[in-house]
Nucleic acid binder design. Structure first.
Lengths: 118, 118
DNA sequence: CAGGATCCAAAAGGATACTG
DNA sequence: CAGTATCCTTTTGGATCCTG
């Protein structure tokens, strides 16, 4: 199982916060974002978890980390790679299914849900 | 977060065995399948886990359970609902992304992987 | 056959404090 | 600022045995 394409991708999706992070990065035309900026937006995420997730996503090739050492202190930023941007399509299909089949009223239970504005 | 359409759907996908079960049910033109039949196909799944997963999927409306009490002993069978069948589309989009971005050689690491024959 | 009940091990992730 | 380290709680799911 562990080598299966589908399960590998599921492993990425399934972890807590991963989707939040991808969506957060996707916002604003995928402009580069900083660690504490992400942390602030994601509110209750702990630095440890954010750190772990970002590293995983980097390894998986969905997120890239950029260093700008022309400035002092050095600035680290995160953004989606091409593959990360394409990944949003999966989220779209999840959203499509969810809206069609999961809720009678066709809207997300969260008022003003940023994910549903995809 | 917990009320968000997307996260609710992720919760379904993310649990171990869930996708396997959906794919197993999807096979053979979604014909009805019995508990022990599924268990046998899924090989290393424990009855507890299969039971729990099937119940979750039933609650989520992706799987329906049918009783045929015209026979003795009563026969219980499981199959995908309409929403469950539509869910396969999400798996398709996961597969598409996985094959395109996750592996250089464009094939699943598993020889003869039943999921990749979707 | 189709599960339910119980117990247990491993993993995941939160809280908090600390550092280059 | 951008994390790392440590500790600890919660969750998950496997193993096993039992039952209508």
């Amino acid at each position: 199982m562990k080598d299966c394409t589908i399960y590998k991708t599921i492993d990425i999706i399934g972890k807590r916060w991963t989707l939040c992070i991808l969506l957060e990065l996707y916002k604003g035309n995928n402009e580069e974002k900083r660690f504490n900026e992400l942390k602030k937006k994601l509110q209750t995420i702990t630095p440890k978890t954010l750190s772990v997730r970002l590293k995983e996503l980097e390894q998986e090739g969905l997120v890239k980390k950029t260093l700008d050492d022309s400035k002092d202190p050095v600035i680290h930023t995160y953004s989606l790679t091409r593959s990360g941007e394409e990944f949003i399509q999966i989220i779209q299909s999840i959203k499509k299914w969810g809206l069609e089949w999961k809720f009678e009223n066709k809207i997300c239970g969260l008022s003003n849900c940023k994910n549903c504005k995809l």
